[in-house]
Design a binder for these strands. Structure first.
Length: 327
DNA sequence: ACTCCACTGGAACTCAAGGGTA
DNA sequence: TACCCTTGAGTTCCAGTGGAGT
């Protein structure tokens, strides 16, 4: 049994005392947003599993409790179209009766530009996934403090014209680098102490998990949870060895659940091939044989790019791509 | 160095769906 | 209930790019 199951949930916002090795970033973010400044931008940049989302949610949690601040969190995997982002922002920040689908973009922008009765913070997680980056400019013009979370600043600023880019370039940057093995082990130690107080594990077990998680706290925490479930807390090396691939597989499954049937079929085409990467044309042809009412090759190209962005596929080459699964 | 051609991704377009309104 | 508006998914078209062949 877990005494504090959230401590082993990689998506849950932890208590402040569970935040280790991100204290500086936490304090900087809190200072930056206390109070939130209208039209200010804050960037949280770092690889997957380095605590960016956790930091932003934790700070917002603290600020909401202590101050009269209105906040909205938007995950750009779920909502990536320009209008969808504006709709989510207006729904969360404005007391306006708006209807999805029948409120135009300009009207949504007008709502956002109204003087707010209280300070506002808008968090865009996975902001490099936005389909139309012009929404960043829409939001920057509004009286709201925007926090942009992304893996990499180059991707975030890709396909933005120079004029908009220079206006967005201002703002506080907080970098979250990949965790070292030592740091990850200490994070696990904290989590395990909360969730598994009977301590049926050793520091060596946590080191072993940390060493194999490639700096990704999500993988490390999920591995600890899987291993614990398998042996009900009695960790040993063989259990951890089994738990690691299972944890990675479970995280991958979470991403796969977000795909539609056609995207999934394209993914399965590549998954069915052992080791040999397929060209885009090969994927499209096999996919089109596999499904009823197949989409066009052009659409398959869009799917593959999306799967690549989801970190489900590896793309080989610079012009004529070949595709394989990420192991 | 040149040409050819497959591949890529942006832009413009169509279409179906969903909600508002008269 | 018919019409209008908006959106998002998908298609078509096409200019740019880079690899392969000569």
């Amino acid at each position: 049994m877990l005494s504090a199951p959230d401590a082993l949930d990689e998506d849950a916002v932890p208590e402040r005392e569970l935040v280790v090795h991100r204290r500086d970033e936490l304090d900087r973010l809190r200072k930056t947003l206390s109070p939130p400044t209208p039209s200010d931008l804050t960037y949280l940049i770092g690889p997957t599993g380095t605590g960016k989302t956790m930091l932003s949610k934790l700070v917002v949690d603290i600020l909401e409790r202590k101050h009269n601040i209105r906040t909205v969190y938007i995950n750009c995997w779920e909502h990536y179209e320009r209008t969808a982002i504006l709709y989510q922002a207006v729904s969360g920040l404005c007391d306006a009766a708006i209807q999805r689908g029948s409120t135009g973009r300009s009207e949504l922008i007008d709502y956002l530009n109204d003087d707010p009765p209280q300070p506002q913070i808008l968090i865009l997680d996975e902001a490099d996934q936005l389909a139309d980056k012009r929404v960043l400019y829409d939001l920057h013009e509004a009286p709201v403090n925007v926090v942009l979370i992304a893996n990499n600043e180059d991707d975030l600023f890709a396909d933005i014209d120079d004029r908009v880019r220079s206006r967005l370039a201002v703002g506080q940057r907080i970098e979250c680098g990949a965790y070292s093995t030592r740091e990850l082990a200490e994070i696990l130690e904290q989590r395990a102490a909360h969730a598994l107080p009977s301590r049926r594990y050793t520091p060596q077990h946590l080191d072993w998990i940390a060493d194999h998680a490639d700096g990704d706290a999500r993988v490390a925490i999920r591995t600890l949870r899987v291993a614990n479930e398998q042996r009900d807390g009695n960790l040993d090396r063989p259990t951890i060895d089994e738990a690691l691939p299972q944890a990675r597989s479970e995280l991958r499954q979470k991403s796969l659940h977000q795909l539609n049937d056609h995207q999934r079929a394209a993914y399965d085409v590549i998954a069915d091939v052992d080791d040999t990467p397929l060209t885009t044309t090969e994927v499209a042809e096999r996919y089109q044989k596999r499904v009823d009412n197949p989409r066009t090759t052009r659409q398959v190209r869009t799917y593959l790019r999306k799967l690549h962005q989801y970190n489900l596929l590896e793309r080989h080459g610079t012009s004529n791509y070949r595709w394989s699964l990420i192991e």
